[in-house]
């Protein structure tokens, strides 16, 4: 009995050693090392929103829904426009009916009649995925179905997502939702299928006022990069440490 056990242990030890030696030929790379090995990308997609130019027509939302096949009649959307109305009493009224898809044609804000004379300021804020440099959604995905591309865009692999919703919970901006048809996590990806082919995004193309622009932060000559470098811009909710890459001109303190 004892000799059998000894043999067994010896055999196991030998087996483990033989198995481990070839494994030691492999090396664990930190994400930074891996990135260095692949080489730095020459593109970092960023977005620039000029809130002064947005009139809340909602054409961007409609265009996005059509382009990215998000069912038109449902309330979820990859991009949306928020309306802010600050009254003289200091109250802020916010709404975004159907994500602003049909434009803000009613003067009622969130179903409430507001006397135009009482308004101190009002503006529109388009929202979309911030393609964060440090994306919380990518961190929490248990299967790696959502990932950051080398050029900074966060994508979702529809064939691998398990639909747990952790990424939806982790995003401080509320840009994620479950696709009503595919039943997996869905989000704005800067129309990656378009920008990687040299086109612009559907929302940028649809915006009649140039309120939305997309650019490459690594290209110093890119007009968007130049604006970000030379103008006072802000990002949303930087306190979460996600390093969002959608920059806003004219962002107000009231913006959520």
């Amino acid at each position: 009995m004892a000799s059998t056990r000894r043999k067994f242990l010896q055999g196991s030890l030998a087996g483990i050693v033989t198995a481990v030696i070839p494994l030691s030929a492999f090396r664990f790379l930190s994400p930074d090392q891996a990135r260095a090995a692949v080489g730095e990308a020459d593109t970092r997609w960023v977005f620039l929103v000029d809130t002064h130019k947005c009139v809340g027509c909602g054409l961007c939302v409609a265009a996005c829904k059509r382009e990215n096949e998000i069912p038109y009649e449902v309330p979820v959307t990859r991009t949306w426009v928020e309306r802010y109305v600050v009254t003289k009493d200091g109250a802020t009224h916010i709404d975004s009916p159907l994500g602003g898809r049909d434009g803000f044609v009613s003067e009622r804000v969130a179903g409430q009649e507001i006397d135009p004379a009482s308004i101190s300021k009002a503006f529109f804020v388009p929202k979309l995925c911030n393609q964060c440099e440090n994306p919380a959604c990518v961190q929490v995905c248990p299967v790696g179905a959502t990932y950051q591309t080398r050029d900074g865009v966060v994508l979702v692999d529809r064939s691998w997502c398990i639909g747990c919703g952790y990424c939806i919970m982790a995003c401080p901006y509320g840009v994620r939702f479950f696709h009503p048809v595919h039943k997996v996590a869905e989000k704005c990806n800067f129309c990656y299928h378009r920008i990687s082919q040299g086109l612009t995004t559907a929302c940028v193309q649809a915006c009649p006022f140039g309120a939305r622009r997309i650019g490459n932060l690594k290209d110093q000559d890119d007009p968007v990069t130049q604006t970000i470098m030379t103008t006072r811009v802000a990002v949303l909710k930087d306190e979460y440490g996600t390093k969002p890459q959608v920059f806003y001109i004219g962002l107000d303190n009231e913006v959520r």
Partner: peptide
């Protein structure tokens, strides 16, 4: 019962992404 894709329930074991608490 909660997963939107219950048939993929084994995926976290196949490709665990360890920065996630669920992995």
């Amino acid at each position: 019962l909660h997963l939107q894709q219950p048939l993929r329930a084994a995926n976290p074991l196949l490709t665990p992404h360890f920065t996630s608490a669920i992995a």
